[in-house]
Amino acid sequence: MARMKFLCDAERCIHCSGCVTACKNEHEVPWGINRRRVVTLNDGKPGQRSLSVACMHCSDAPCMAVCPVDCFYQTGDGIVLHNKDLCIGCGYCFYACPFGAPQYPSTGNFGGRGKMDKCTFCAGGPEADHSKAELEKYGRNRIAEGKLPLCAEMCATKALLAGDGDMVSTIYRERVMARGFGSGAAGWGHAYREQERTRERKGPGAKE
C-alpha cells in the first residue's frame, strides 16, 4: 500500500507561489485560509531557500494524537484527513502541528474559530466522492479521479513532488545524485566564497 507524501525540493523552488494559487483556486479556499504557503529560510543571506509547506500527512500525526474529539483519520494510503462534522474548532491541532498546517476560517464571538481546515492532499473528506457536500467542506477530490494534488502537478520547476513516498524518494534521489547536494555541489564554495569566509573567521595566515 502506498503512503502518500509531499516533498519540496528547496534547490528548485523559486517562490513563485504557483502552488498556493493552484490550491486556492482548485478548492475555492476562502480569504484568510492558506492550506499551502511558501516560506523563506535564511532570507537575504547566502544559502537562502524557499520551501512550499502544507500538511505533510505525517505517518504518526501529532494532530491526530491531540484531537479531543478524534476527528482525524488516516486513509489506507496514509493521507491524514479530518471530519468537519466532528471538529469543534478547539485549535489543539494547530498548536501540535510542527508545520502550522491547520487553518481556521473565521474569528467570531467568544474566540470561536470555526471548523479547522487544512490540506487534504486533494483527497476530499469522508463525504461521498465528488458530492456537493464534499466539495463545499473539503474541496475537490482529485485523488479519486486518479490525479495527484494540483499544487505539485502545477509546479513549474517540479520542485514540489507528491505521490507515493517510495516514488517521490526515488525521483529526489536521482536529482541529488545528478547535481550533488548542498555545499557538496560543484561550484558551491566558489559561488558563496566559503573558503574566503572561513579564512576571515580564522584570521590571516591560518591554515585551511
Binding site: 502506498a2 485523488i143 490525479k147 502537478e153 517540479k158 505521490g163 507515493d164 516514488m167 525521483i171 536521482e174
Partner: peptide, 15 residues
Amino acid sequence: ATRLALNQRMIWQTD
C-alpha cells in the same frame, strides 16, 4: 485502477 493512474501521473514529475 485509481492507484495505477496516480502512479502513472507521478512520471510527469520526473526530469
